[in-house]
Amino acid sequence: MKLIQGTTLAQSWLDACEHLLAQPGWVDTTVVLHIKEPARVRRHDKAVAEALDAFLIAHDQYNSHTVAETIFPGYEYVHRGLDGVYKSYPDEIFPRIKDHPQFRHWGTYAHRLLRRTDCNGREYNPLAELIKKMRQKNPVRASYEVGLGFGFDLATYDDDEDRGSRLGGPCLSHLSFKLIGGKVHLTVMYRSHYYIQRAYGNLLGLARLQAFVAEQVGVATGPLVCHSTMAVLEHGKKWGWKKGEVAPLLVTCRGKTRNATPIVDAYG
Rank of each mutant, 00 (worst) to 15 (best):
E69S: 06
T8L: 13
S12Q: 05
L20G: 05
A39Q: 14
T66V: 10
V78E: 08
V67Y: 06
D15I: 12
A16Q: 03
V67F: 04
V85Q: 02
H34E: 12
N63F: 08
G25N: 10
G74W: 04
T7Y: 10
H34Y: 06
E76Y: 02
A68P: 01
L21D: 14
T30H: 06
Q11K: 11
H65V: 12
T30Y: 05
Q61Y: 05
Y62M: 13
I57T: 12
I57M: 12
W26V: 03
C17T: 11
W26I: 03
G74A: 07
T29Y: 09
W13N: 08
L20Q: 06
V48K: 00
V41K: 05
H79A: 07
H19A: 15
S88G: 00
A39D: 11
A58C: 07
A22N: 14
D83P: 02
T29W: 07
R40E: 14
A58H: 10
Y86D: 09
H34C: 06
W13M: 13
D45W: 12
A58R: 15
A49F: 11
R40H: 10
P38F: 11
E50F: 08
R40V: 15
T30L: 08
V31P: 00
R80F: 14
K46I: 00
L20A: 10
T30D: 08
D45C: 08
P38S: 08
E76F: 01
Q61L: 15
A22M: 11
V85W: 00
K87G: 00
G74L: 03
Q61E: 14
F55H: 08
D15F: 13
R42F: 11
Y86K: 06
R43P: 00
L52S: 04
V48C: 09
R42W: 06
L20Y: 05
Y77A: 04
L14G: 03
D45K: 05
G6Q: 07
R40S: 14
D28K: 03
L33H: 02
E69Q: 15
I57R: 13
C17Y: 07
V78Y: 03
I35R: 02
T7E: 15
H44I: 03
I35P: 01
A47S: 11
E37I: 10
Y77V: 00
G84D: 01
K36N: 12
L82P: 00
E37Q: 14
H44T: 06
Y75I: 10
S64N: 15
L20K: 02
L56M: 12
E69P: 01
E50M: 11
V27N: 05
S88P: 00
W13G: 02
G81S: 05
G81T: 05
L9M: 13
A68D: 06
L82F: 08
V48S: 03
L33C: 02
L33V: 04
G81Q: 05
D60L: 13
G81E: 06
V31M: 09
Y62R: 14
L33Y: 03
H79I: 02
V31K: 01
K46P: 00
D53E: 11
L52M: 09
G25F: 12
Y89M: 04
A22C: 10
G6L: 09
S88F: 09
W13A: 13
F55N: 02
D15C: 12
G6R: 07
G84M: 03
L21K: 08
D15G: 05
